[in-house]
Amino acid sequence: MRERLSGGTSLRPLLQVLLTVALFLFAIRLLGSATDALTPFLRRTLERVVVGDWSALGLSWLATYALANGSLVAALSLSLFSADLVAPSQLFLMVVGSRLGAAAVVVFIGAVDYVNAELDTLRESTRLGLLTFLLTHSVYVPALVVGYLALPIVRSVSGAETSVPDAAVGTPDLLSDLTDSVVELFGPGLAFLLAFGCILLSLKLFDRLLASVDQERLRRRYIRDLNDRWVSFGIGLLLTAATTSVAFSLGVVVPLYNRGHIKRAEIMPFVLGANVGTLVDTLVVAVALETPTGIAIVTTLLALGLVISVLLLLAYPTYSRVVGAVQNEILADRRYFVGFLLSLVLIPLGLVLL
């Protein structure tokens, strides 16, 4: 009896993971089906807001603030692209915007107590968020420039390969049949909201599963390895890619950083790796939506993030000093800090209004 019980308890986490993954994939496909059904309405709405590539960047940036979830905005961007509502260049910029916005959300969370807090409390509450913001932008702003210029090549390569993987046309797609039935049953509007809710629920369930992991054991296992910048970068990348959760991977090391057990120079490579690994779930969405160009665009951004991060690690002593100096300067001067917070809203808003 005891053996059966232990076997059942060991299978329970596996079943929870499988159900969570199944719910996530169902939600992504439902989002795609609902977006297709809502194409006329969404087209009229987007034509008023997205008047160019850069307004698409600003819109996804601001949407990430509103939803406080970059992965959800990236998934929606891919869904809009699969319905031919946004161009490839706009998709690329919207995925980049989801990463830039997600980094700023961390700063906003830490700055909630700014009005009623002392300067020392402000530094403690925002220093990691500001560090994450600086690291993310130092990678994805150059990736934005290089990737945007390289988009014609990416599109030509992905376009040449779209005719290759069409061998399974005759096989029934049960998941598509199911999502189409849900859209017909509830209507495209409710199905769209249901898809959003299912994505959020699957992410919450996955975070709950990760919360049961023994983080203290992970800290003891990897604390010494964080002293090596390359190993630290690899751990951050693989841990985030495997868990598809930046909140979890950073949650493993944030307590150590806040308590002074890990120095800024030691945590920076880990955060750089996490910033690359976080695109893996976006790549999964692109694959689930069966968009070859979307897969190529996300893969290109992931590769650029990896290459730029490696280059920054090669010049790590200089890079860490520059980032540290900027972080200290912003936190030390109240005017700089207020100006920095205002820029987080004014820049994406300005991109939308251009």
Score class of each variant (00 low, 15 high):
residue 194 L to P: 03
residue 117 A to T: 06
residue 213 V to E: 06
residue 141 V to R: 00
residue 208 R to K: 12
residue 304 L to F: 04
residue 271 V to N: 02
residue 211 A to R: 14
residue 208 R to S: 15
residue 354 L to D: 02
residue 68 A to N: 12
residue 303 A to E: 00
residue 297 I to Y: 03
residue 103 A to W: 02
residue 283 L to Q: 13
residue 13 P to W: 10
residue 10 S to T: 11
residue 186 F to W: 14
residue 303 A to V: 14
residue 95 V to T: 07
residue 182 V to H: 07
residue 177 D to H: 08
residue 229 R to G: 04
residue 44 R to E: 13
residue 49 V to T: 11
residue 7 G to M: 12
residue 306 L to A: 12
residue 46 L to A: 05
residue 199 I to E: 10
residue 297 I to A: 05
residue 152 P to E: 01
residue 244 T to I: 03
residue 5 L to D: 13
residue 157 V to R: 02
residue 3 E to P: 00
residue 310 V to E: 00
residue 200 L to M: 15
residue 253 V to H: 07
residue 130 L to Y: 10
residue 131 L to R: 10
residue 96 V to F: 00
residue 26 F to P: 04
residue 181 S to M: 09
residue 107 V to A: 08
residue 31 L to W: 07
residue 260 G to R: 10
residue 67 L to V: 15
residue 279 L to F: 09
residue 236 G to R: 10
residue 82 S to Q: 13
residue 275 N to P: 05
residue 25 L to G: 03
residue 249 S to P: 09
residue 210 L to G: 11
residue 99 R to E: 09
residue 83 A to R: 07
residue 328 N to V: 06
residue 21 V to W: 08
residue 316 Y to W: 11
residue 331 L to M: 12
residue 166 D to W: 06
residue 21 V to M: 10
residue 167 A to V: 10
residue 303 A to P: 01
residue 245 S to T: 13
residue 94 M to I: 02
residue 5 L to K: 12
residue 22 A to I: 06
residue 103 A to R: 03
residue 52 G to D: 15
residue 88 P to W: 08
residue 93 L to I: 05
residue 246 V to Q: 07
residue 202 S to W: 11
residue 154 V to C: 00
residue 115 V to F: 15
residue 279 L to Y: 01
residue 207 D to H: 13
residue 104 A to K: 02
residue 271 V to G: 05
residue 354 L to C: 01
residue 179 T to G: 04
residue 315 A to T: 06
residue 298 V to H: 05
residue 15 L to G: 15
residue 272 L to K: 00
residue 167 A to P: 00
residue 52 G to P: 07
residue 83 A to V: 05
residue 77 S to Q: 04
residue 229 R to L: 11
residue 265 A to F: 04
residue 180 D to P: 00
residue 213 V to L: 15
residue 291 T to E: 14
residue 25 L to Y: 11
residue 220 R to K: 13
residue 192 F to K: 08
residue 24 F to N: 09
residue 348 P to K: 04
